[in-house]
């Protein structure tokens, strides 16, 4: 079972991303997944989060994620807005961050970090700063889910704007990297069922 927490700002498509990730895993990879959005006093720009759990076996737990294996930041300004992105994390927790460069303020500097400039990818592919589909590609690049499943789920969810969003996902998957010196992502087998977290 892999538990994922996605933080971002209202309007960035955080909830949609959690749903599309789960559709990719549950429908297109035939594993199990559930997306649990947290609803509150919504407004554009306010910090929001959504939880996703993906698993090879049926998922019993029905609540929120308290010990994330992955923390995904659609916008690192949530840290300045008082969101404790370290909540429930451990040394093993992997961070996936939408940013141009890693910043000193990150409280997770000793954790494994994947970085991608999803904002730039989204602006290039979609012409709008909605990084959710690019970040879904980044999740595939980080090995959480297969890119083909992500593309299929985006295609079924986004209708006419699917091609642009698929492009964003592919581009972000290509650009994501684990550290500054690493080569851009190589092709890796990222079907959820073969994921390292399931095998351990």
């Amino acid at each position: 079972m892999i538990q994922i927490k996605i933080y971002g700002l209202g309007g960035q498509g955080v909830v949609t991303a959690a749903k599309v990730l789960c559709e990719a895993v549950a429908i297109h990879e035939d594993a199990h997944a559930q997306a649990i959005p947290a609803y509150g006093h919504e407004r554009r720009g306010a910090p929001v989060y959504a939880d996703a759990v993906i698993s090879r076996d049926p998922i019993k737990m029905k609540g929120f994620v308290y010990a994330p294996d992955y923390v995904v930041l659609f916008d690192d300004s949530v840290i300045d807005k008082g969101i404790d992105v370290m909540a429930g994390t451990s040394e093993q927790t992997v961070f996936i961050v939408n940013t141009q460069k890693l910043k000193d303020k990150y409280p997770f500097k000793s954790n494994k970090i994947y970085r991608v400039d999803a904002q730039a990818v989204a602006l290039k592919s979609l012409g709008r700063d909605i990084p959710n589909t690019a970040m879904l590609g980044a999740l595939a690049g980080a090995g959480i889910v297969g890119i083909e499943a992500v593309k299929a789920a985006i295609t079924s969810k986004f209708g006419d704007s699917a091609p642009k969003n698929v492009e964003a996902a592919e581009e972000a998957r290509r650009l994501i990297r684990a550290d500054e010196k690493a080569e851009p992502n190589k092709d890796i087998d990222t079907n959820t069922k073969n994921h390292a977290a399931f095998v351990k």
Binding site: L9, H41, G45
Partner: peptide, 10 residues
């Protein structure tokens, strides 16, 4: 705490 609506801005 939420009356300073400028904090909502993106």
């Amino acid at each position: 705490c939420s009356t300073k609506t400028g904090t909502w801005r993106i």
